[in-house]
């Protein structure tokens, strides 16, 4: 029961925050609404028993990404461009398209009966145990490529279940590459001559 109340509370905060981001014209307020919304998402993660993920969400998103965005706001919000307003027509058009999209999504999802879908499960892979909190250790092992939570056996042989060693490693390469790129772009440029394009490199 408590969980229900908490869910409705945070769900309202998530949706409200997201709507706030859309509706607000002021970029600083948008950042505030975004923090609210994403923070509440992390609360929902906790409710779903994904404690590590919830923490990561708070740390990386609220603590990292959004702060990055706020930096961006501060660096770019100067002078007359502080408020760049969306015209009413654009807003209306966006609302229409968004409404249609929402209709499509909800009409598909709401008809689903997930429990019925998965009781018919007869695939070789066993239903994994559903994470109910305390996911730090299984997640860590999964990143190393080990899945004790999801043993797959064929006869007497033990086969490795999908482990995530490769993406875990390769994503670090990705981060490296991306940060190099971001640093390059954000570095002070040498040809500070935006009005005069020269094609010769």
């Amino acid at each position: 029961m408590t969980a229900d109340v908490l869910f409705w509370l945070f769900a309202a905060l998530v949706c409200g925050g997201a709507l706030g981001v859309v509706v607000t014209q002021n970029i600083v307020r948008m950042a505030f609404w975004l923090i609210l919304s994403l923070g509440s998402v992390s609360a929902l993660f906790f409710l779903l028993g994904a404690d590590f993920l919830g923490a990561a969400q708070l740390l990386i998103y609220v603590g990292g990404t959004v702060v990055l965005l706020v930096f961006g706001v501060m660096l770019t919000a100067s002078g007359p461009y502080m408020q760049i307003k969306t015209s009413a027509a654009d807003g209306l058009l966006g609302a229409c398209v968004g409404g249609l999209l929402f209709l499509v999504l909800v009409s598909s999802i709401s008809g689903m009966d997930w429990s019925q879908l998965h009781t018919t499960n007869t695939t070789p892979s066993v239903i994994a145990e559903r994470p109910e909190g305390n996911t730090l250790r299984p997640l860590g092992l999964a990143f190393l490529g080990l899945r004790p939570d999801r043993p797959v056996t064929e006869g007497s042989e033990v086969k490795p279940a999908p482990g995530y060693l490769l993406p875990f490693e390769i994503v670090s390469v990705h981060l490296l590459v991306v940060l190099v790129g971001a640093a390059y772009l954000a570095r002070a440029k040498r040809r500070a001559n935006p009005s005069n394009d020269s094609l010769s490199a």
Binding site: L93, V97, G98, V104
Partner: peptide, 8 residues
């Protein structure tokens, strides 16, 4: 906007 319209 076309992405959204395209999906729909």
């Amino acid at each position: 906007m076309w992405i959204a319209v395209g999906v729909v």
